Simulated scan of single mutants.
Amino acid sequence: MSAGTRTYGVLMETLDDIGERTDTNLACLEGEPEPWESRMQVTCECLSKAGALDNLERRHEEDRLGETIYVRFPVRTRSALTVAHALMDRNVFSEADLRRKMAEVRTRLTEE
């Protein structure tokens, strides 16, 4: 995968929604995962099975990017950030595409 050190504004801006990292140890990973986390893992498994995004490489990149670019983000959000980062690096979708989709979802959620 070898995601670069490029930062994507659309991902960095989510820090305002998520909030700064307050989890300072791995105890934050105890307990049941949130539904979105389970779905994220299933999506990653599907991407790996299809050969689009190898799980082991993704995990290495998650460690690397999580301690550099995404260090201010909570540990549990880093998988989603890393996958989005990697897919944009691979030109699967653009930063503008992701920004549009996120706006769509936010609108839908506020209407509910």
Rank of each mutant, 00 (worst) to 15 (best):
S2T: 08
A3T: 13
T7R: 15
T7K: 15
Y8C: 03
V10H: 14
L11Q: 00
L11K: 11
M12S: 05
E13L: 04
G19P: 07
D23H: 00
L26R: 09
A27C: 03
C28I: 01
L29M: 07
L29E: 03
G31T: 08
G31D: 01
E32Y: 11
P33S: 08
E34A: 11
E34F: 01
E37I: 05
S38D: 01
S38M: 08
M40E: 13
E45Q: 14
C46F: 11
C46V: 10
L47P: 04
K49W: 13
K49V: 10
A52Y: 11
A52T: 10
A52M: 07
E57T: 06
R58C: 07
H60Q: 12
E61K: 01
E61N: 04
E62C: 08
E62R: 12
D63W: 11
T68I: 00
I69W: 09
R72E: 10
R72M: 06
P74S: 05
R76E: 11
A80W: 15
T82C: 09
V83K: 04
V83E: 06
A84T: 00
H85V: 02
A86L: 06
A86E: 08
L87I: 00
R90D: 07
S94V: 02
D97M: 05
D97H: 13
R100N: 13
R100Y: 11
K101R: 14
A103Q: 12
T107N: 09
R108S: 06
T110E: 13
E111T: 00
E111Y: 02
E112S: 07
